[in-house]
């Protein structure tokens, strides 16, 4: 069975449609800026984790059609990450570079988020057939960074919550499960590479 890419594309845009709808209706709550930043941040992390479920899901279910959508899911993580970064830099900080640089150097949670975003950048740029054929085996190595990005995201989340760590812990646990699921396959992978 194959999943039509168009369906995934539309589904992946639903969060954006939802938050835009709320903004349009002036229904973002008492603190709209925070709402948008939190929403886009959460969806960045959601897509990073969803992307990481593709491989184990395929391996356990034997459903190879899943692989077709992995790249798109990863790119949506980058897309929501970009919206998240723009919400922070634009609507929150008003592109006040002085304040933003201060934030990056003084506050580790911002640095962790930025590192996560910058780590995504080469992955997004090389997510095309040309780069795959050009980079060959190095492409696979490079794209192992896909494990590091959500880890930095979880670290970012852990450092920013005031006291209640429930949500970052849930994300962290999910990430850990997704990484552990890979352990046996990693070795198979290497053997057949």
């Amino acid at each position: 069975m194959v999943i039509p890419k168009r369906v995934v594309f539309v589904l992946a845009l639903l969060p954006l449609l939802w938050i835009s709808w709320l903004a349009f209706r002036d229904a973002l709550g008492a603190h709209p800026v925070e709402r948008v930043i939190h929403f886009t941040g959460q969806w960045t992390l959601n897509f990073l984790l969803i992307t990481l479920t593709v491989t184990p899901l395929r391996q356990y279910s034997g459903w190879n059609g899943l692989l077709r959508i992995r790249r798109m899911l990863g790119l949506f993580a980058f897309f929501y990450g970009t919206l998240h970064l723009l919400s922070y830099a634009g609507i929150d900080q008003w592109f006040d570079w002085h304040a933003i640089v201060h934030d990056i150097v003084k506050h580790p949670y911002i640095l962790a988020g930025l590192s996560g975003y910058l780590t995504m950048l080469p992955l997004a740029l090389t997510s095309n057939a040309w780069a795959v054929s050009k980079l060959k085996t190095r492409w696979k190595k490079l794209h192992r960074l896909a494990y590091l990005v959500p880890a930095l995201g979880v670290l970012h989340f852990t450092w920013l919550v005031k006291k209640d760590l429930t949500q970052p812990l849930i994300y962290g646990t999910l990430l850990l499960i997704l990484l552990v699921l890979r352990l046996p396959f990693q070795s198979q992978w290497r053997a057949t590479r």
């Binding site: 903004a23 008492a30 709209p32 948008v36 609507i91 003084k106």
Partner: peptide
């Protein structure tokens, strides 16, 4: 996090 500035609730997006 920084305490230099603040956001007044009700100010909108």
């Amino acid at each position: 996090w920084s305490q230099a500035t603040e956001r007044r609730i009700g100010g909108g997006l």
